[in-house]
């Protein structure tokens, strides 16, 4: 079931690209989210002063609060990967909230976007593990004794691929489901504002899913840091 009307698709139609934009709304709306987020970052960082004002205040509360939260989970070694995880959090939160605006498509309601995000987060946790522990980190995947490597290696690989999939499907399922329910209620009883309660729930779901994504990527990084002790 497609979206009834997307504003960026008709905007791209002016340049004769509406067929492509209608087929890939998540790409188009991800560009929009990127533009807005880059602009917000520029706005927050353009006049950094010791005594924060307006925009800087908001960003400082958000960033330092989440950084403290992450450091309690991962320990001090996790501070290095905070920029990546925070970027993912803000992007996912913003992408989820875009679904609440009429004629907007949330980029996180497409499985390609969420798979890319989950893959980056999990792959980065392994990079951190190899950086901190070297060869010992890989040894952890091979089980206690060398004779059992053919048994343990596939099990560990399946277990770690399931992490990527669980992150992917949780976010994709929640956001696509929310979109679908909203569209169905809109077609059934849009005149009586039927999708309103679901959209109210959607604000909550958007925040919770972004937090869960942030928390789980942090957990995986924490697991990679304390591995092989």
């Amino acid at each position: 079931m497609g979206h009834p009307y997307l504003i960026l698709t008709s905007l791209f139609g002016m340049f004769g690209l509406d067929g492509w934009a209608a087929k890939n709304p998540h790409v188009v709306y991800m560009w929009l989210a990127m533009i807005i987020l880059i602009f917000l970052g520029w706005l927050g960082g353009k006049s950094i002063s010791m005594v924060p004002k307006k925009a800087q205040n908001v960003f400082e509360v958000l960033i330092s609060g989440l950084e403290d939260f992450m450091v309690t989970i991962t320990g001090d070694e996790g501070r290095k990967s905070f920029p990546l995880v925070l970027t993912i959090f803000i992007f996912v939160l913003f992408g989820n909230l875009m679904g609440l605006v009429p004629a907007f498509f949330p980029p996180t309601a497409n499985i390609n976007t969420t798979l890319a995000l989950a893959f980056i987060a999990v792959a980065w946790s392994h990079v951190i593990g190899i950086q901190l522990h070297g060869v010992k980190y890989i040894k952890h995947f091979l089980g206690p004794i060398p004779a059992m490597i053919p048994l343990f290696l596939p099990i560990e690989i399946i277990g770690h691929t399931a992490r990527v999939l669980s992150l992917t499907f949780r976010l994709f399922g929640n956001m696509a489901g929310h979109e679908l329910v909203t569209i169905i209620l809109l077609t059934l009883g849009g005149m009586f504002l039927a999708p309103l309660p679901v959209m109210a729930l959607g604000t909550f779901v958007a925040l919770v899913q972004a937090l869960v994504f942030f928390l789980l990527s942090t957990m995986y990084i924490a697991g990679a840091i304390e591995e092989a002790h």
């Binding site: 669980s166 789980l216 957990m219």
Partner: peptide, 16 residues
Amino acid sequence: GSVFRELGYFASLGMS
């Protein structure tokens, strides 16, 4: 921090 950490970990267990 540790409560949230356990919550996240065990909540994702069933799905994984």
